[in-house]
Simulated assay, not measured.
Amino acid sequence: MAIIGLGATPAWAQTSPAAETMDHAQHQGAPSPDAVKPKAARDAMPAMDPSGMDHGAMPGMKPEKVETAGEMAAMDHGEMKMQGGSAPPDARDPHAYSGGYTLESGPYALPGPRVLRLSDEHNFGALLVDRLERVHTRDGNVTAYDMQAWFGRNYNRLVVKAEGDVSQGKLQEARTELLWGHAIATFWDTQLGMRYDSGVGPDRSWLAFGVQGLAPYWFEVDAAAYVGDNGRTALRLGAEYELLLTQRLILQPRLEINAYGKSDEALGIGSGLSDGAAGLRLRYEFTRQFAPYVGVERAGKFGKTADLARIAGEKTDETRWVAGVRFWF
């Protein structure tokens, strides 16, 4: 029975008296047997080469193949299946309706005319008054407006633009456009329609074509080309940027330039680069829909337009101080 009990003892529990003595000695701070050997004897011992050890001969250990760097470089990475590639044969068409059901057919279709509609099937409208301001110059005060309204869907809509100046209760100059807008890319619309100029001088009509949208780095761009009667042509470019100083305090740089292909002396316009304005407006948004602002703007006339202004005794450049409100609904 004693023999059987000894055989049942785990291997890790079978400790020889010599091992117990050595372990006790190490706990007492005694040096190991190798440490007490003379240095010459220790130096004479053959160095152990781990790479030469036969791990396969050790009981309980299975030999494993160690891959070298050359073998790892020879791996065929083409067999590794990465994300992407062709869809499996049983993949569902991502462009098809779920399970083949539609809004007009199938067990879940409602009787009568179709009630459910996607967002781009609804008509929406909005009015943005970007600038409604009082302009102060050395020659007097002027009320200016710049607004845009649209009605329609996401891809096609009717757009109305209006910009002008009023002084002493009289319309000095105005530009009104009636356009059809069509979405061509994310944040970008093409616009085609008519432009009508009115004010103190003779009226002018134009065919208008342009693009409007949000350029990279969040620049709002409005560019248009115009063709009028008697071979008149014109180009207009407007750009804005909104710099958020805080969530409510916003600084808006703005630039606008105009060019004409033919002189129109009745309106004081010369061919080439005609006029432009650059300004800064600082607004505070009580809500996103309502924000008063103050600012400064520098306006000037160039080229032949400046020459016509000098002949008429008018200034070719001026500084404007503005105060107004921006709102939309």
Rank of each mutant, 00 (worst) to 15 (best):
M1W: 08
A2S: 08
L6K: 13
T9L: 15
T9F: 07
A13V: 07
A18V: 10
E20S: 06
M22K: 09
D23L: 14
Q26K: 13
H27Q: 15
Q28G: 10
A35S: 14
V36F: 01
R42I: 11
E64S: 09
K65M: 10
K65S: 11
A69N: 13
G70M: 07
M75D: 12
M75I: 11
K81Q: 15
M82I: 03
P88A: 05
P89V: 13
S98G: 11
G100S: 04
Y101G: 01
T102Y: 04
T102I: 05
L103H: 09
G106V: 06
P107G: 04
Y108G: 05
A109I: 04
L110Y: 04
R114C: 01
L118V: 02
F124M: 14
A126D: 15
L127P: 04
E133Y: 04
E133Q: 14
T137Q: 11
T137G: 11
V142Y: 06
M147N: 01
A149N: 06
G152H: 06
N154W: 00
Y155K: 12
V160H: 02
S167I: 09
K170I: 10
A174Y: 00
R175W: 02
T176D: 11
L178T: 05
T186E: 15
W188R: 06
W188L: 06
D197W: 00
D197T: 03
V200S: 14
W206A: 03
V211E: 10
Q212Y: 06
Y217Q: 12
W218C: 02
V221A: 05
D222K: 07
D229Q: 12
G231P: 10
R232M: 12
R236D: 09
R236S: 10
G238C: 05
G238K: 09
A239K: 00
L244I: 00
L249D: 06
I250D: 03
P253S: 09
S263T: 12
G268W: 01
G272E: 09
A278H: 00
R281P: 02
R288M: 00
R298D: 09
G300V: 02
G300P: 00
K304H: 05
T305V: 04
A306P: 02
L308K: 02
T316L: 07
T319N: 13
T319S: 12
G324W: 01
